[in-house]
C-alpha cells in the first residue's frame, strides 16, 4: 500500500515501499498479533476462498453455473495433480495441498490489484510454507518407511562407485529444497511487482506522455498474471513431488 509522493527534486522511485509491513490501525509496534496489512490481505484471500469454494458452490448444481464451474475446475486441477504426481495414496493429503495452492493463487492474484500488498512476496510467508512442507514430508517419510526412507538418497540404479557421490548430492539437494521452494515463489512475486513499480515511477516522472512506461507496465502485468498462476502451480506440484518422495522413496 505504498503511495508515492513525487519529491520536487525529480526522479523518486520507491519500488520496495509496497512490501512494507504496516500496522492497520496506526502505531509503530509490530507484535506478532498486531493486525497489519498482512492480516488484511490474508483475510481477503480467505474471503475469496470462501467466496469461490463455499458460496460459489452453494447451489450444488448438477449443471454448474460459472463460479461453481471454476471451483470444480480448481478442485479437479489440484486433485488430478496430486493423483498423477503423488499417486493414489497421496490423495489423503489432498486437502493440505489444496489449501496451499488456493491460498497462494489468491494471494498472488490479490497482490496484482493496484495498491495491494502481496503477502506471498515475503520470504517469511513462503519460507514458513516451504518449511512446513519440508518437515511434514520428512517426518511422514520416516514414519511411513522408517529406515527405508534413506533409500531416497541411495540411487540403486547408478553404478556402485557413483552411489556415495550421488548420495551426497542428493542429501544436499534434499536440504536445499525448502530454500528453493520458498525463494522461487517470493522472488518471482517480488521481482514482478518491483519492476511494475519502477516503470510506474518512470510514468509518474514523464506525466501525460508516458506511453512507453504504461505499455511496459501492461506487458509486465500480463506476464505477472501468468506468473501468479504458474508459481502457485509450481509450488503445489513441487509439494506433490516431495510428498511422492516421502511415500515412495525408492527410485
Amino acid at each position: 500500500m505504498a503511495t508515492e509522493t513525487e519529491a520536487p527534486s525529480g526522479l523518486q522511485i520507491h519500488p520496495m515501499d509496497q512490501f512494507l509491513v504496516k500496522p492497520l490501525f496506526g502505531g509503530d509496534a509490530i507484535n506478532f498479533y498486531t493486525p497489519t496489512n498482512v492480516t488484511f490481505w490474508m483475510a481477503l484471500s480467505v474471503l475469496c476462498v470462501i467466496g469461490l469454494l463455499v458460496i460459489g458452490t452453494r447451489g450444488r448444481a448438477i449443471v454448474p453455473n460459472r463460479i461453481q464451474s471454476i471451483a470444480e475446475l480448481a478442485y479437479g486441477f489440484v486433485y488430478k495433480m496430486v493423483e498423477d504426481v503423488a499417486g493414489k495414496d497421496g490423495l489423503k493429503y489432498f486437502p493440505y495441498i489444496m489449501t496451499l495452492f488456493i491460498f497462494i493463487v489468491f494471494a498472488n492474484f490479490l497482490g496484482l490489484i493496484p495498491m495491494a500488498f502481496t503477502t506471498t512476496s515475503h520470504i517469511a510467508v513462503t519460507a514458513t510454507m516451504a518449511l512446513a512442507v519440508f518437515f511434514f514430508v520428512t517426518i511422514l517419510g520416516i514414519v511411513k518407511n522408517g529406515f527405508g526412507f534413506l533409500s531416497l538418497f541411495w540411487i540403486s540404479a547408478a553404478p556402485l562407485v557413483l552411489r556415495p557421490i550421488l548420495a551426497i548430492i542428493e542429501v544436499i539437494s534434499y536440504f536445499v529444497r525448502p530454500v528453493s521452494h520458498s525463494i522461487r515463489l517470493a522472488g518471482n512475486m517480488m521481482a514482478g511487482h518491483a519492476v511494475i513499480k519502477v516503470f510506474a515511477g518512470f510514468a509518474g516522472v514523464l506525466g501525460v506522455g508516458a506511453i512507453a512506461p504504461v505499455a511496459a507496465i501492461t506487458a509486465v502485468y500480463a506476464l505477472e498474471v501468468l506468473v501468479s498462476f504458474i508459481q502457485a502451480y509450481v509450488f503445489a506440484i513441487l509439494t506433490c513431488v516431495y510428498l511422492k518422495d516421502a511415500l515412495h522413496p525408492h527410485h
Partner: peptide, 30 residues
C-alpha cells in the same frame, strides 16, 4: 513473527473451510 502468525491463522482457516465444507461438497457434487 507477525507474518508467520497471520499466515498460520490464514492457512488454518482455509484448511478448516476446505476440509469441512468446500471439498466434501464439491466431491459430492462431482
Amino acid at each position: 513473527g507477525n507474518q508467520i502468525f497471520w499466515l498460520v491463522v490464514t492457512l488454518v482457516a482455509i484448511y478448516i473451510v476446505l476440509s469441512r465444507v468446500a471439498l466434501p461438497r464439491i466431491a459430492a457434487v462431482l
